[in-house]
Nucleic acid binder design. Structure first.
Lengths: 110, 110
DNA sequence: AAACTTACTTACATAAAGTAACTTACTTAA
DNA sequence: TTAAGTAAGTTACTTTATGTAAGTAAGTTT
């Protein structure tokens, strides 16, 4: 019986990025602070899951939630320094995808 | 009504990495070819899901499955060139995790 | 022959995600 | 000044994904 022996920090990072939608949310926020509905429509996530993820990411200090007291109130999500620092990861993924993912044929080639 | 407008290649890469276990499997295989049970015990994944993932990754040409006709037969999984090329992504994640993830307190600090 | 190993698969249970409708507070159009 | 709309969620319910444990087939070791 052997126990998994991967660095716990690495594992934590992986489990963060392996959660559906997290990477995409961070990616969106790299373009600047955004509101709930903007994020939702731009990545096509359900309100429920977005709400979960935002709480989760906030608790991990990756994003911050700001209440801007305009009327009506505006709630703005943005990256913290820690969140910003993930840009390098997202860029690597982007580069890799451009180099290696082939555009998906719509299965229409007859 | 606005449609999500993220680059499909990037999205595909993200959805690949957002699948639980995929990143960890690739990470393991970066250390060299491995057999089913080795992967399973090293990352602590269930046989069922590992089996699913390996098929999936094989179909995406990220890993290859080789039957080595020893007796008994050995089945070895290894990265393809495409799979190997993901090393940069995994390394970025590793670096980031070292810099930004704090070791998780075991909740034991009294 | 009985027990063990490898590489899986199957059946069933639980957790995560999706869908759609609802809420509360404020706003604009009729 | 009521009716409908927007923003930021939440709730209830369904579907999908993952986990757990046991089973299988081929070969091995005792």
């Amino acid at each position: 019986m052997k126990l998994p022996t991967i660095c716990p920090k690495f594992e934590k990072a992986i489990s963060l990025l392996s959660q559906r939608w997290t990477a995409l949310i961070i990616y969106q926020l790299l373009m600047g602070p955004q509101r709930f509905n903007e994020i939702q429509t731009s990545i096509g996530i359900s309100g429920k899951v977005l709400s979960d993820r935002l709480k989760d990411l906030e608790s991990q200090d990756i994003i911050k939630r700001e209440v801007i007291p305009e009327t009506p109130v505006i709630i703005e999500y943005s990256l913290t320094e820690k969140g910003q620092s993930m840009e390098s990861i997202l860029k690597e993924i982007e580069n890799w995808s451009q180099a290696w993912i082939k555009p998906d044929s719509k299965l229409l080639e007859d």
